[in-house]
């Protein structure tokens, strides 16, 4: 195949269906849209929902928002479920209220980036785009 069209990264942004805080996730969604990404915005009920949607939607990156608890437990569950589904290659990014004591566990579970609020949107978008490009390259090989 010849030169591909410019990359339109596909991003899954998700949060728990019981988390009512959606300002951050919506703001990131709009920033990603303005950064040329397609954003699928859904709530999950269980971590396996995240994996199912990510596969059907053929996304390049997954971003999970936590504003009220469950940071480590849910992230680990998502990463494990991705691995079991043979998609351990999909980069996972987390954001929101990430407490200092969450960081180590999140990092060791393989999370690719952590956004704790206050980061420049530009940098957030760039991180997503970079991870998407990398993820596509890896899959193309």
């Amino acid at each position: 195949m010849s030169a591909p069209e410019p990359l339109v990264p596909r991003v899954l942004l998700t949060k728990s269906f019981i988390d009512s805080h959606d300002r951050a996730i919506k703001t990131i969604a709009l920033a990603l849209r303005d950064g040329g990404c397609e954003v699928i915005l859904v709530d999950y009920e269980t971590p396996s929902d995240v994996v199912d949607v990510a596969i059907d939607e053929d996304v390049d990156v997954i971003g999970v928002s936590f504003m009220s608890g469950g940071q480590v437990a849910v992230t680990q569950a998502i990463v494990t479920a991705l691995g079991e589904a043979g998609r351990g290659d999909l980069p996972v990014v987390v954001g929101g209220t990430i407490r200092p004591f969450d960081v180590d566990d999140l990092e060791s579970s393989g999370v690719r980036a952590i956004f704790r609020g206050g980061e420049k949107l530009e940098r957030v978008v760039e991180t997503f785009r970079d991870l998407a490009a990398e993820s596509r390259r890896r899959r193309a090989e």
């Binding site: 019981i18 009920e45 269980t46 608890g69 469950g70 940071q71 480590v72 437990a73 849910v74 569950a77």
Partner: peptide, 12 residues
């Protein structure tokens, strides 16, 4: 309820 255990007692 499945998969909410991580949030129990966590922010309230």
């Amino acid at each position: 309820f499945p998969a909410v255990q991580g949030a129990i007692g966590d922010c309230g």
